[in-house]
Amino acid sequence: MAVFKRANRKSKPWGFQYSYKANGISKQKTSFYKTRKEAKAAEAEYLTSTGGPVKIDPVITFADWYDKWLHTYKIRSVSELTMTKYATSGTIIRNYFKGLKLIDLTRMIYQQFINNYIDDGYGHKHARQSVQKLHSHAHQAIMAAADEGLIRRDYAAHAELGGTAGRSEDTKFLEADQFEKLRDYVDQFANPQRIALMMVQTAIYSGARLGEIGGLTWEDIDEKKSTISIDKTFKYRFVIRNADGSWPEREKVFGPTKTPSSVRTIKVSPVLIASLHKLILADRIKAISNPYHLLFLGPTDLPIYSNGVNKELRRALKHLGIERPGFGFHGLRHTHGSYLLYKGLDIQYVSHRLGHENVGITTKIYTHLLDAMTQKQDEKALNVL
């Protein structure tokens, strides 16, 4: 009995082969499938129907299996931040399924779980992206259970996903003229007494993520070359100062960037460099403990959290008369990229500057803008021809 893959076969490359006896004669039967999951499911079903050695655990709950899978396969392979997202999904799974045994899970029960997360009927609704993320986490655990032979098949394979539309494109980006007005505003008012506004200024000129900006140190700023080096993030969710006010070890303060490709050195405007120069001078004369030379220490002597920078951003937008309900700090990153593309910069350059894993991610994020630019190019082509 075996699951195998046929070489150079595009149509149903995965096979499941088993032996049986007919009239005292040993025979073999082979069935072929499109995917390995289908072949493994056939194997599990065969073992169950024939009383074979399926490793079904009649006791373990789905929630317990998810936790076991998470701490076996993910704890060493994902960042702490990603691990917290998986753990959050685990809490949602446990709250819904409670004591449901893994062996009692069915496709219908799983679909009801997804439906409830989309809209529980009591005013709690989730966006399509949130539904897809939860499903991705739960599905991985269910696939692992099927591979282990703990359940007969992957009951989440064909789940129908939905959810609200989420934020519109208008809440993710500023228009070019709005972006320029905001840039001019922060250039005028950002100073070492308004740390959150300086973080907004840094996001405008760099397109960096909040964690990347929070993790910037004096040494990351090269004033002569007008560059910023991004090679770490500040662990917003995990950093707690010691009881005596001292800092924990470096590995508890800084984490890796989102992906290896997020490590980058980028050119920035001399305007931002001059602003950061003033901040570094101010930091150096402060009588506070800052052993890691963090740039953006707020009133609590820690980098300002998202609530603080978003409050300062909303204040600036209100002052400028820019109405963008739902627009947040991360939107500055999206707007930075869209503004550069709008100004004609190459998408490959923008992708590298933002630290995207590949240019496909950049294309997906800025589809609306690229479509509009293509339309303009089409119009120019028609005029030329």
Rank of each mutant, 00 (worst) to 15 (best):
A196Q: 09
E80T: 03
I347G: 02
Y117V: 06
Q140S: 11
I213N: 15
G331D: 01
T84S: 11
I204Y: 04
P325H: 12
Q111C: 09
Q28A: 09
Y18P: 04
N307R: 12
T233N: 09
D231F: 02
M373G: 00
I228E: 00
R314W: 01
D154A: 13
N290F: 00
I93L: 10
I56V: 15
G355I: 12
D378L: 14
L295Q: 06
I93S: 07
A127P: 07
N116Y: 05
R107K: 15
K37M: 13
T35P: 02
N95Y: 05
Q28Y: 10
T227C: 03
G51N: 01
E223T: 05
L354N: 07
S246V: 06
G162K: 06
K40I: 15
R107Y: 07
N116F: 03
K27C: 14
G321V: 06
G90A: 01
Y292M: 05
A274M: 11
R314C: 06
R314G: 08
Y110M: 10
N115K: 02
P299Q: 14
T265M: 11
I288V: 15
M143A: 12
Y236N: 10
F327P: 06
I118V: 08
L150R: 15
R284E: 04
A372C: 07
I285F: 06
H336D: 06
I213D: 14
N191K: 02
Y349V: 11
H336W: 05
N115I: 00
L279T: 01
G90K: 02
G149E: 13
L100W: 06
K235Y: 02
D231E: 05
D244I: 13
I60M: 15
Y117C: 05
D220Y: 04
I240S: 12
F329L: 09
R324M: 03
I25G: 08
D154P: 13
G214D: 08
F173V: 14
G24R: 10
L340H: 07
A39Q: 14
P53S: 01
E223R: 08
I230E: 00
I228Q: 00
R76C: 08
F16I: 10
P13I: 13
K5L: 07
L341H: 05
F327T: 02
V253S: 05
H356P: 03
V268G: 13
Y66R: 09
P53M: 00
H158W: 04
I151K: 15
G308E: 10
E180M: 04
G52L: 07
F234E: 03
A22V: 10
A159T: 01
Y342I: 05
A203Y: 10
G328M: 08
L313A: 07
R264N: 13
P192I: 03
Q112Y: 08
Q17D: 14
Y86K: 02
D184S: 02
I195F: 02
Y305E: 14
S269I: 05
E312D: 07
I92N: 07
L272G: 11
N8R: 15
Q111Y: 06
N191D: 04
G255L: 05
K225E: 12
V271W: 04
S19V: 09
Y292W: 02
